[in-house]
Design a protein around this nucleic acid. Structure first.
Lengths: 324, 324
DNA sequence: TACAGTTACGGACCGCGTAAGCATA
DNA sequence: TATGCTTACGCGGTCCGTAACTGTA
């Protein structure tokens, strides 16, 4: 078994089982990839891919295992090379972030701007997607850092550190009946059509569930992936918007009335995750701290070290998380 | 970077920085290893080893990092090969266990005997050592399974599952004054010289600490690594022995009086640890279950999956651990 | 016929082993 | 002088790229 074979395998898996495309990404010829793949399968004694005719159609169960472990191997090899770059004090590299729309659009821009000033030679790659898509990126090792809210169980194997709390806010046009009410009740809210995130969050903080606990049924008129869309429809008078606090800009949204809804809905925590045992470059530490100032190197290292909740939770007991 | 280079590196690290010895283990020539090592160092751009003259004397800090990650890579590669063996239903392989004297001498023999009957083609390697030595074996990937009591913090990165509880027992010659007492007090115990394990266990269950809590100072006459030695000195009348319950055999120790000391000292838990994300062969699952019947495949898989204490602890809440 | 993967073959490269060289105890 | 690492060099294997072939939409 050669590293090259694992690289080829991973590339094929990441190219939608297209050997030709993988070969191009790898800057090599298509037969080279094809042959090494076959050699690897021969050595292992089973097929990694299911072939219908000559095209690869899907991954066998055992093949899935092999790919996952191959990705781990390659990540670790990258880490070894990273040690070298880190030692030479190189401030160049890539910072690959997988995150949701809210972070990418509202929270990250100033952080990334500041980061780029300090590290002009680090390329920042922003991969936006749903929680599921981000989990996929983590599995295929395409990102260094995941930033998300909720959905803890989608990301096993990641070290997850809390970054900040946030609350939901209600947005209505300035002439809306709710606009004059400082602390609307759930009942008042339920009287109007609601525009909010798709399936916003599962579990105890799910919106329908909170209404249901008070024997109310929300009239969800429209759900969207992101706050921009939601606000647009609120402006059109389609309903009352419920969005994340970060997604509001006093100047941009001056035509809307914003009402704090922290008395109605529990606070959420946005967290950041990275691979356990992964190599964190200096610029990554710095990025994380720019994003969440309480996350200093020492704390992060201890979080990465801690393997069980007992030791892990204690780490953040003394930390007052910022609210946004 | 080649897998071969990482293999050579790991072998050198495991051979006490002796290239010649490593080359022999690898069934290759010494210059081959030497050259590949140098090539690897060249590629990385720094030295992994400190050389005084031509001999390797120690590992550089960065080198230590590289070695640790190289070991991870090689382990993962082994796992990939293991998938193949598992798929073919091969019941052959190696089961490498790192453990302490008490387990190796008293607890494991019947388990291993049973295991060997079911899997005659699996070679069992028993590596005996102190907790520190076992941790070292884990780090250098020499063992699949660690079995120990206490010392959790020495084994970060291992999935640790509880196996059974045990208590300390007091052993005295049949003619000893304590022999007639069913439930001796700490005070009575402190009146005699004591023979027990070296530094038995740190923390709250440390023997001197328990005495100290009752304003007593134990007269520890002699400490030894294992129960056999302790019993020998008890037979010689050197003092009162305090040993693990597993270390007593009714027939072998008929010349000694055994007194349960569970009312004096808290119970210990013996646990078993394996690498997170490691490949567990079928025979490993079976071995573990032979050792601790409550640890079935499903429970182990969930334990390996669980990353934080919250989910982890719940797993064993319903399990009644056996006592020995 | 266009597309994707496999097979075939020649050339470049690389890693190994042997043998000789060199530093240290 | 013995031990242990490095350097030198020739051989064999391996991997790649080009090109021709084959099965599929």
């Amino acid at each position: 078994m050669k590293l090259q074979q694992l690289r080829y395998l991973a590339a094929v898996a990441q190219s939608g089982l297209n050997i030709t495309a993988a070969a191009e990404k790898l800057h090599t010829s298509q037969p080279a990839v094809s042959k090494q793949l076959k050699l690897l399968e021969d050595e292992l004694g089973f097929n990694i891919f299911v072939r219908s005719g000559r095209t690869l159609t899907k991954i066998t169960p055992a093949g899935q295992q092999v790919i996952e472990r191959a990705v781990k191997v390659l990540r670790e090899v990258q880490n070894i090379k990273g040690i070298s770059a880190e030692l030479k004090g190189e401030n160049a590299g890539v910072l690959s972030i997988g995150t949701t729309h809210t972070q990418a659009r509202y929270v990250l821009p100033p952080v990334i701007q500041q980061f780029r000033q300090q590290y002009p030679d680090v390329k920042v790659q922003l991969h936006q997607g749903t929680s599921e898509q981000i989990a996929e990126m983590v599995a295929l090792d395409r990102i260094d850092l995941a930033i998300a809210t909720g959905a803890h169980d989608l990301f096993p194997g990641l070290v997850k550190v809390p970054c900040y709390h946030w609350n939901r806010h209600i947005v209505v046009p300035n002439n809306h009946p709710l606009a004059g009410i400082k602390k609307p009740t759930l009942k008042q809210l339920a009287a109007y059509p609601i525009v909010t995130y798709v399936f916003s969050f599962t579990g105890s903080s799910s919106l329908p569930l909170i209404f249901a606990k008070n024997d109310l049924v929300p009239n969800v008129a429209l759900t969207a992936q992101d706050a921009d869309v939601i606000k647009t429809y609120v402006r059109l008078g389609l309903g009352v918007g419920i969005v994340a606090s970060m997604a509001l800009d006093p100047s941009e949204d001056s035509d809307l009335t914003v009402i704090d809804a922290s008395h109605l809905f529990p606070a959420h925590t946005t967290w950041m995750g990275f691979t356990r045992g992964g190599l964190l470059r200096r610029y990554m530490y710095d990025f994380i701290q720019m994003f969440a100032p309480h996350l200093n190197k020492r704390l992060l290292d201890r979080a990465a070290q801690a393997e069980n909740h007992e030791t892990f939770d204690g780490l953040f007991d003394d930390v007052q998380l910022p609210s946004k």
